[in-house]
Design a protein around this nucleic acid. Structure first.
Lengths: 72, 72
DNA sequence: ACATGATGTATGAAAAAGCTAACATCATGA
DNA sequence: TCATGATGTTAGCTTTTTCATACATCATGT
């Protein structure tokens, strides 16, 4: 992926809309560590496709409502 | 990602529906090598979220129409 | 004041994704 | 027949993602 692209996400918002779900709870549900959720949520790196799908599923949303792609 | 999940895709079908687009052309459009397209298309590994978004965009489809997530 | 829980930071190592390059197979057309 | 283009395979290497662990900060409640 040579192009400069950016992935943003609404995980933090969705967690709180889902009844104050903590990072740890989300991590447990998708089977990763809390650090991974933290890093993804804060945009340190973007998740694998599997993880992205898993997170979207927890919130009952299509993937594109959780993660946004912006090319540039 | 501890859970056993699988990502499938319709890249091959979409390429041919897009006027016999070759792996090389798709690779060029999304900025990766042909080997990467080949590996993703044949399920050797799943792409990063960025690449998945980029591929979906080339075909003008939502990401979930190109890649499918199946948990188990 | 102190314990607890949620979040953030940092580091080092493992695993997965992607690259380059070379070579093989197969179909098509000149 | 031979060249070409598309696809597939393999190997070694780099970069990115994830894990594991430890520690810091901050708000809350007792």
């Amino acid at each position: 992926m040579a192009k400069k692209t950016r992935i943003t996400n609404n995980i933090r918002t969705l967690r709180f809309m889902a009844g104050e779900m903590t990072q740890q709870q989300l991590a447990d549900e998708v089977g990763v560590t809390r650090q991974t959720i933290l890093a993804v949520e804060n945009g340190k790196y973007s998740p694998t496709l599997e993880l992205a799908f898993a997170i979207a599923k927890v919130f009952g949303r299509p993937l594109e409502e959780v993660f946004s792609y912006e090319d540039e």
